[in-house]
């Protein structure tokens, strides 16, 4: 794997954030973390990660607002974003998915950690 691929994980649930960050670190990523949308937006624009994993329901600025702001940015409009979703919420995001070609989603509760990593790698086109 190419060295130095970076991932930004935006998730307000500390425990979930931790386990994802640890996993991606073990997978050789440079894992950046943020606990809400505004923090996430700042970190994204500053570090310009290769991919962003984004939770939707968060305090201060939620995932959808952050995504909107991100897409307004010249760099941000092309960065791949995977929404951390619960299966039932995916319906609401479907219209977004249809219009935003750089958007995917991960289902928290019935995906394993390895499935998440697989999806991220697929999105980045990283092959082994």
């Amino acid at each position: 794997m190419k060295k130095g691929l970076s991932i930004l994980i935006v998730e307000d649930e500390r425990a979930l954030l931790q386990v994802l960050a640890d996993k991606f670190t073990r997978e050789g990523f440079l894992a950046l973390t943020a606990a809400d949308g505004s923090e996430g937006l700042k970190a994204a624009l500053k570090h310009k990660p290769d991919i962003i994993v984004l939770d939707i329901i968060m305090p201060s600025m939620d995932g959808l607002q952050m995504l909107k702001k991100l897409r307004e940015n010249k760099w941000g409009q092309n960065v791949p974003v995977l929404i951390l979703s619960n299966l039932s919420d995916s319906e609401e995001n479907e219209s977004l998915l249809a219009t935003d070609k750089r958007l995917g989603y991960l289902i928290k509760s019935n995906w394993g950690l390895d499935d998440v990593v697989k999806k991220v790698k697929e999105t980045l086109g990283v092959l082994f």
């Binding site: 649930e13 425990a15 979930l16 386990v19 994802l20 640890d22 996993k23 073990r26 619960n86 039932s88 928290k108 509760s109 394993g112 950690l113 390895d114």
Partner: peptide
């Protein structure tokens, strides 16, 4: 049920990492 999903997913992922001896 909505609220319980995130903690349950968290447990799931931590357990997975441990089970796989990572």
């Amino acid at each position: 049920s909505h609220q319980l999903r995130t903690p349950l997913s968290t447990i799931n992922w931590y357990t997975e990492a441990l089970v796989k001896e990572e």
